[in-house]
Design a protein around this nucleic acid. Structure first.
Length: 290
DNA sequence: AACTCGTGGCG
DNA sequence: TCGCCAAGAGT
């Protein structure tokens, strides 16, 4: 397919249908973009919005966050999930103050060196906040390209070399258009080319989508494992964190015992949370956010 | 490379 | 109802 012919319809569609998100506004700081990207890792936009707003209100710069105890970040993280991201964001803020004069760096290499910033987030911040030209491969982009270009419903489990090469070939040559392209494809995946129930009737490239043109062939790759939840350590850790987040005073062990029946698992998870830096033991049998 | 790490909304 | 999935990173 002449992949360059995807550009105009996708860019035009984005111009008309893009969501008004706080971290996309012209006045949004690179710090706002970085905060949003950490929060959006595996968490839907709708749930991020209020937390992001409160976060930027309270900590308008990396230095503001770095000056606080890590526990304040964990508490403000609320129920976004994966609270280690709050610790990483705090650590990233600290590194930005220490190594970059308090300014979020614009270079991919500097960004990816920050805690909690991997390939996707480094490329996203460089692209969205600084207008740099990068291949931005998130779950939305990967799904759109798998369908429109690859002709299959789902991409591979992890990013392949061929996938990255294909995305690089699609990237417009100049920085500004490349940055818009990156966010536009992502938005198309989020709003139209969704994981379940894609709205092909509303898709600007439906008439040239390889998957649709092939008649929407069923997925025939390896089974995609469902996330286990009931009875897992993650569920146990989540229960323990709720107690600590909701208490503004240190908590006795008995209050933690009450939320998970299996003593062995509960003890292991609490030790894990302490080891992760999400929980501090402040006295014998007394715990608090760090 | 496979596994771990939260939470909640939606079809 | 309940399985699926959401702007991934670290190990």
């Amino acid at each position: 397919m002449a992949t360059s012919e995807l550009h105009t319809p996708v860019l035009d569609w984005y111009d008309e249908h893009q969501r008004d998100l706080p971290w996309r506004r012209p006045e949004a700081s690179p710090w706002s973009v970085l905060v949003s990207e950490l929060m959006l890792q595996q968490t839907p936009v709708k749930r991020v919005l209020p937390v992001h707003e409160a976060w930027l209100e309270r900590w308008p710069t990396p230095a503001d966050l770095a000056a606080e105890p890590t526990g304040e970040a964990v508490r403000a993280w609320g129920r976004l999930g994966y609270p280690r991201r709050a610790l990483r964001l705090h650590a990233a803020a600290t590194a930005i103050v220490a190594d970059h004069d308090g300014e979020v760096p614009a270079d991919y290499d500097d960004l990816i060196a920050l805690p909690g910033v991997g390939d996707y987030t480094a490329a996203a911040v460089a692209s969205f906040a600084f207008g740099r030209r990068h291949v931005v491969l998130d779950t939305n982009v990967r799904r759109v390209l798998a369908r429109a270009v690859g002709g299959v419903e789902w991409p591979a489990r992890s990013v392949t070399r061929a996938e990255r090469d294909a995305a690089a070939l699609l990237l417009p040559a100049d920085d500004a258009t490349a940055a818009t392209w990156a966010v536009a494809v992502m938005e198309l995946g989020a709003l139209v080319c969704t994981a379940t129930g894609p709205r092909c009737a509303a898709c600007p490239v439906a008439d040239r989508c390889a998957w649709r043109l092939a008649g929407h062939p069923a997925y025939d790759g390896p089974p995609r494992r469902a996330q286990a939840w009931e009875g897992t350590d993650r569920q146990c850790r989540g229960r323990l964190m709720v107690v600590l987040r909701e208490s503004h005073a240190p908590v006795h062990r008995s209050a933690l015992d009450a939320v998970w029946p299996d003593e062995e698992q509960r003890t292991r998870c609490l030790a894990g949370l302490v080891a992760d830096g999400l929980v501090a033991q402040v006295a014998a049998d007394v715990y608090a956010l760090p």
